[in-house]
Design a protein around this nucleic acid. Structure first.
Lengths: 124, 124
DNA sequence: GTTATATTTAAGTGTTTGCTTAATTAAGAA
DNA sequence: TTCTTAATTAAGCAAACACTTAAATATAAC
């Protein structure tokens, strides 16, 4: 945005624009956090993982690899992102690590799961 | 996944895994569509645009550029993605194009907007 | 100890993303 | 028509993504 060729519209509502700017600023943190979560869920593989964890309660990378038909490292890297994003957590049992959804983000995620189920009902 | 070194766990629940596979397959379309929408909303700039359109009803690329503090082409490209994703639509008025949310996807989007507002209340 | 299993991490790579600047299209005003 | 404004499109590019294969880590079994 070097060359500010901003199209200063004649009819631009300066007050409205200023209000919007303030709203964004006031919610800065919320936008950043929420978009982060949505970006995580915005990957089809990760969305499936989240959905499966909701349905099955907990699953290990090995199972997910089988279910999703993709390599273990690929799954593991997705799980790491979800863990870093505070969406899932792992519990060790011997050599196996069981991942599950963290309660924290569930409020936001549940509508997605419901939506998927609903779509299914529509098709049926 | 050439070299199927799949860790066939001793305790793996084959029935569970098969059920999961079927669930994924049955909802294939829903996963692809929903992850597409979430990927759109998973970009901070686009999330802000969607939020602003909800609040202000409609806005033009020029206004959004001012509000977001980014170049018009950058905004325009985000709008295009949202339009291609069937999330927003444009209405021409002279040289100006006003974008607004499409009713269609609003059911899924509204919880996000509410969440942002709620976060704000918490902070205040 | 050695070996096997479950998982993670690291390095490499092709693809996608999101911006930039410049060119183009579209409508209105002179 | 020419000029200005609003918006889009195109080309280029750095950064992020999502996989791959190979190496490393961690626990359990022998």
């Amino acid at each position: 945005m070097e060359n500010n060729q901003s199209c200063i519209r004649v009819f631009a509502d300066k007050v409205q624009i200023e209000n919007c700017r303030e709203t964004l600023q006031a919610n800065e943190k919320a936008f950043s956090q929420l978009s982060g979560l949505l970006a995580l869920a915005g990957n089809e593989v990760r969305l499936k993982i989240l959905f499966l964890l909701e349905e099955e309660n907990e699953l290990c990378p090995c199972d997910l690899s089988d279910i999703l038909g993709m390599s273990i490292p690929a799954v593991s890297q997705h799980l790491r992102k979800l863990k870093d994003g505070n969406v899932i957590e792992g519990r060790r049992e011997g050599q196996t690590i069981f991942y599950s959804l963290k309660q924290e983000q569930l409020t936001l995620l549940r509508p997605f799961f419901k939506h998927i189920i609903n779509q299914n009902l529509k098709t049926a």
